[in-house]
Design a protein around this nucleic acid. Structure first.
Lengths: 187, 187
DNA sequence: ACCTGAACACCGTTCAAGT
DNA sequence: ACCTGAACACCGTTCAAGT
């Protein structure tokens, strides 16, 4: 289901790639995105060199693991474009974005930083969708017209980041999202 | 100028503590708060064990390094309490808080997480000051009365966090702070 | 073309020995 | 009471050798 297009892999290489992704999901779930890459390789039954061949950096691996999630985010954005209320549509999308950024501990940082050289297609598409939803709400006169779309997405990522910290009220996410929406709305 | 009260140190221990703090400032400035503690110890001319004796964890060291800054934040808060405009006062304090959280790369995370067991006096005092400034603005009817002071401080920390990432517009900080203030203000 | 795994450089942390 | 520094367990990354 990955949107990444690339030359087909040899059968064993494809199998290893899948094992690595599966092992990474399990490791990230348990230890966050800073999980030991050595352990990931071990759990996948491959040498560390194989991991590095497939994913040259930790960020590459992280982005690959959440590739489906990011593609889903882009698809959701397309649907929300039909929503008659552009502010509600944006809010729904941002909530989904925050959820995606909360999938693993430490993920928000990768999502906000995303070195351009590492960005996957799905990553780019999801960002484009987010920007478009912001722009639509501005064009409809519902947001201040000096609002920057990148600021909105960064702030949503930051909300996910805050949620990563221990001892946070689970309801905080909703309150922070409300502050963000109220902060960009035209009153 | 530290507000931390503790039993006086032996002369050589006090000297080592100072050297460690000085070395840590230099290392944090250059490499962020994830700088090698081994290098810090080396630069301070002590063994790694001495560093651990003075600062049992990286967070302890970080908090100690910014202790003066946090004390200054508390002092600023006391002054701002005299400001006739409670929203402007809060905004000024948050801007200073964000600045403090931007002193070193990676510092925002420590400031937002601050494990209670590690929190210094200055750290606690600065948070109390921030909360009080929020409460004053609520009591004056200038903020929504369901605004949570912790949310406001967390969001300010998150703004500092966003600013840590590469390729960010330096003017973004002001825009994000505006979103925060507009997001909590009563309209 | 891809994989393996030893090897390297590094790091945080502990603790026995010293003063 | 405090410091030293060797030792330990661990990590990311590379690369020569293999298939």
């Amino acid at each position: 289901m990955s949107t990444e297009t690339s030359k087909p892999l040899r059968a064993d290489a494809a199998r290893n790639r899948r094992s690595l992704l599966d092992a990474a999901v399990a490791a990230f779930r348990e230890h966050g995105v800073t999980a030991s890459l050595d352990d990931v390789a071990k759990a996948a039954g491959v040498g560390p060199g194989t991991l590095y061949r497939h994913f040259p950096s930790r960020d590459h691996l992280i982005l690959a693991v959440i590739d489906d999630g990011l593609a889903g985010l882009a698809a959701l954005g397309a649907t929300l474009f039909e929503d008659p209320d552009p502010v509600q549509a944006l809010q729904n999308w941002l909530a989904a974005f925050i959820d995606e950024g909360s999938a693993f501990s430490g993920l928000a940082g990768t999502l906000v930083a995303t070195p351009p050289a590492v960005q996957s297609n799905a990553c780019r598409q999801s960002r484009v969708t987010g920007r478009a939803l912001v722009q639509r709400a501005i064009d409809a006169g519902r947001l201040r017209d000096d609002v920057d779309a990148g600021d909105v997405i960064d702030t949503a990522g930051a909300i996910a980041w805050i949620g990563e910290h221990p001892d946070r009220d689970p309801a905080q996410r909703e309150r922070l999202l409300r502050i963000l929406i109220e902060g960009i709305r035209r009153h």
